[in-house]
Design a protein around this nucleic acid. Structure first.
Lengths: 232, 232
DNA sequence: GGCTTATGTCAACACCGTTGACGCAAAGTG
DNA sequence: CACTTTGCGTCAACGGTGTTGACATAAGCC
């Protein structure tokens, strides 16, 4: 963001409680708040009191709460992708990207659920898009195909990861109840009206698990099959 | 629907403005509000004034806004799947299922975005799983594979649809800002640090669109390629 | 040391979901 | 028809939310 106030030259005045505010400190505190007390714990007022400052002070650093949320999202992306460098195998590299993003989301389940579908427009997202599109270009796809396919890939990864994160963010009681539904409620399905469910009865337990890797691998297989360079 | 408080025997008193309240009327008004005035128009207070009653009257019909939201979600699912019967072509049938789910979500974005991660365990979900697993069984997959692959498929569809709905549910200002980011902020990327972005500069506008169909088609292609019966 | 001005503070506004008390009118009973 | 019960709509209030504009004050520049 070019419009952003430079962090270094800021004329920072300590707050009432002596804390020196900064975008990084605010983002970290927000992430901590969400992680500790759930997504509903994130409000300007609570964030202010957690930082020991007036809520309105945050508006000196972020245009509004949406702006703050995008900063949090970008931070998650940055943490997830830290130290990652794409290798020569573009499929394997995209796969690792996917797993990293998912791990980053699962580390902050509640924040991830809010931010998965946003465009952060910040440096970490820039780098991730650069890396992903670059990998597809290196696979021989034309630029327009590379962009379209990267979008399909990353949207699948992000939305799937968000879904997993949302499940993880559920209260344990509710999560276990949802999982048990597949081994209990669905087992009682009437064979006449639900023949397919009956046939697959012994396998329905798999419904309780995440399909993230399966879906990513299916998608990557389809991408590999369409790569100009060959079937693999 | 039928398990709720019987609508018939209710001791319904006309509101101040003469309207007779009911669960159906409330749900329909909520959907209409969202459809006419955007997703952010749905609040208990606005819903109350749209119905010509005090906001608190709604709590006679729904435990809280969450309960109301689930009722709305149930209606959306029912509407989306109404009249659908799987055909002989399992790939085409799964594709139509996907498009129907998405259309249902997009028709009522905010409700869908808020309810997408819920497991209903109700009749409509039963029927959907039965249909989907049945289609994969008919394709020749063994039951365990059919279950796993259906899960990967439906999770991709649901999470993608939820993501699209969530984007649509954003306040217009934020949504447009997110979309413009690809044609403005990302255009200014430095060619030296972001060579791939530079190469694909003219195609980045595609990032603002939905990748739903592309992702579904990629996944279905991968499924078709793995079907025991052959590529089709 | 004085000036400018960025920045933290404060008070206020307009919303939000939810609740409890209250009175009225509809349903049930005879 | 009259009487009682009670479901329901209304009202007022509580505590929460994001955001804004006025204001003082202290940091950094000359």
């Amino acid at each position: 963001m070019t419009t952003r106030v430079p962090q270094e030259n800021r004329r920072r005045r300590p707050t009432r409680s002596g804390v020196l505010l900064s975008q990084d400190l605010i983002v970290e505190t927000a992430l901590r708040l969400i992680g500790e007390h759930g997504p509903e714990a994130l409000s300007v007022r609570r964030l202010g009191s957690a930082l020991g400052c007036d809520p309105s002070a945050l508006y000196r650093y972020f245009r509004n709460t949406d702006d703050l949320l995008l900063a949090v999202a970008d931070r998650i992306i940055g943490d997830a992708m830290e130290g990652f460098t794409p290798g020569p195998d573009w499929v394997a590299s995209l796969r690792e990207m996917a797993l990293r993003v998912r791990a980053g989301y699962l580390a902050h389940p509640r924040a991830a659920a809010m931010a998965s579908y946003r465009v952060t427009r910040r440096e970490n997202e820039f780098r991730a898009v650069e890396t992903g599109v670059g990998l597809l270009l290196s696979a021989g796809f034309a630029p327009d195909r590379a962009v379209r396919l990267y979008l399909a890939f990353i949207d699948t990864v992000l939305s799937h990861a968000a879904m997993d994160a949302a499940c993880l963010a559920l209260p344990p009681q509710q999560r276990e109840a949802d999982q048990q539904a597949w081994t209990e409620v669905y087992q009682a399905a009437d064979p006449e009206t639900y023949p397919a469910l009956s046939t697959a009865r012994g396998e329905l337990h798999a419904m309780a698990e995440s399909s993230f890797e399966e879906a990513v691998d299916l998608l990557l297989a389809a991408l590999a099959a369409r790569a100009p360079g060959g079937q693999d």
